[in-house]
Design a protein around this nucleic acid. Sequence first.
DNA 1: TGAAAGTGGGACAAAAAATGTCCATACTAA
DNA 2: TTAGTATGGACATTTTTTGTCCCACTTTCA
Lengths: 342, 342
Amino acid sequence: MIQQLIHVQKQIVPDLLDTLRHRYDILHYVRLMQPIGRRTLATSLGLTERILRREVDFLKDQGLLAVATQGISLTESGRNVLRDLHEVMGEILGISEVARELEQKLGVRQVVIVPGDSDETFWVQRDIGRAAVTQLKARLAPDDNIIAVTGGTTMASVAAMMSPDKKERPMHFVPARGGLGETLELQANTVCSRMADRAHADYHLLHIPDEVSQETFERMVEEPSIKNVLEMIRAARIVVHGIGEAETMAKRRRATPEHLQMIERHEAVAEAFGYYFNAEGEIVHRVKTVGIQLEELDNMDTVIAVAGGKSKAQAIAAYAKHTPNIILVTDEGAATELLTCY
Amino acid sequence: MIQQLIHVQKQIVPDLLDTLRHRYDILHYVRLMQPIGRRTLATSLGLTERILRREVDFLKDQGLLAVATQGISLTESGRNVLRDLHEVMGEILGISEVARELEQKLGVRQVVIVPGDSDETFWVQRDIGRAAVTQLKARLAPDDNIIAVTGGTTMASVAAMMSPDKKERPMHFVPARGGLGETLELQANTVCSRMADRAHADYHLLHIPDEVSQETFERMVEEPSIKNVLEMIRAARIVVHGIGEAETMAKRRRATPEHLQMIERHEAVAEAFGYYFNAEGEIVHRVKTVGIQLEELDNMDTVIAVAGGKSKAQAIAAYAKHTPNIILVTDEGAATELLTCY
DNA sequence: TGAAAGTGGGACAAAAAATGTCCATACTAA
DNA sequence: TTAGTATGGACATTTTTTGTCCCACTTTCA
């Protein structure tokens, strides 16, 4: 029914659907940046001042935007409309359809797509984060939830978008892997703690490098502080994780030249939990890591894989082929690339 | 979901729904009158030539209209779009909602509303007819269908819109009442025969006046030709009938001055099957008629009451209060009037 | 406290689009 | 053949849109 309406509207009033999208973009951007000035907004959206002004005046008349001396911001009803709009935008842009096609093609459990391309527009990353949070909350158990999370830029924005559960279901966050690379912001530990903070929930940290020798591992595992956390990780029923590009991850991990060569020789394109995949989704290399192992994902209730941007399309394709149990949260850019090229 | 979309669109691109409706009207009119010239079309729709031209050019570019030297007509995809549009238009105009409210308010089985007001725009009558036919066909039994129909202008346009059943379910049409008044076109017999013709179905006629004295009735009922038809009428499971305004009907029936006075004294507003109703839906007068009696409606599987136009709102209200078992097919004009005033 | 940067709103000319109107020409039906 | 009706082209005029400045005001930071 709704498909029908949109299809008809595309035929009969196509330009108005375009302005719908423009105005959606404006509201969307204002929500992120409010209060924001007219000129700043115009340049950010790539519109001339006058054009934007017309739109803003219109939206002000509709009571969706409030414009004051400190800038433009959303009104109450603006927020409401934007939220509703958010839900139907998928249909309007035909994204829902793309999502269904992707589910079929990749054979994964569910695909969620947000509009835009995070390679091109910075705020799309936030939307991906928001969508991932929504998916996570939709799958919380009423009683006990141990949620394992990984690191990375994408996961950092998932954490930034976390908010307390309205139904106050208990959550405990644990890192799914050990420390990896240098940047503090991208550590699983950091993401874990920030996410828990924003959710007003517990968390535990894993103070151990991701890659360790067998002996070190066996010794450290006896440490109570580590042992406990590892047990919690094993008990997790929900995992939220990013998908890495093989090369990037190898560099971040400061891999040895031999490793890098191996990755190159096997044409690895994706990385997750220390496993490297080639374009066909086959495991071509494996780094012994602490934390969740790939095989364990099959026993999880919910595995949410989050990754966006056209550049990550290949990595997503490779990983998804190997792991059908995931809920994939991505963006339009990656999704369409994935559908057309892989 | 679709409500949500429409609600959001009303807020964010109010023009969208307006121009959608304009273009819908154009397509709609073209379907009825094709091929039609640009100027004729413009004056019919109350638009200036230039305005209409812009719209037609647009619709031509979209491939929905074909414009040739003999005039403007619908293309194949124009017909398809219009059909889809027809289905969603109810939602867009908020008619579906009105219909549901009316069902509640009148307490009838179902209400179907077509856009427009047949008092103001002549083609709305046709749409009502089309809608009634759709309802009728949706309720045909697979095996045997005896359908009783009355006369009147509204019923005449139902007959005009009848078409053969695609599933070829057998239908037999009979008049629900005898002959009444002078105009041949509006006789139940005429409607019955035309409807059957257009449906490629059987029919039987009832050659007897609607109003007769008891003795005449008893004598004529012995006539085999009449007796058979009356038996078929008793066996009918489906009735399609119009709703009359009391005064109009009394005049058409050439009522005696006493009758007219009685109608006026009791403030009768509606008529059906020889029964007169006041505004409260009470029976205030009854003419002894041949054919279906009001009480018999309760035993019918399907009773489709058809009436449109703001002027008939009161009659519809009165009749519907008394007869909750009906499926009411009407138009926007009558429906909104009914909802606001009665 | 003062200045700098950022804000909305007003104003206005230039450009573009929409509109009303007429006319020429082509086709159709009688 | 003719009368009538059709479209498409043309064009001046009106209306709307658009790009650009400037001004007064507020906030913020030094």
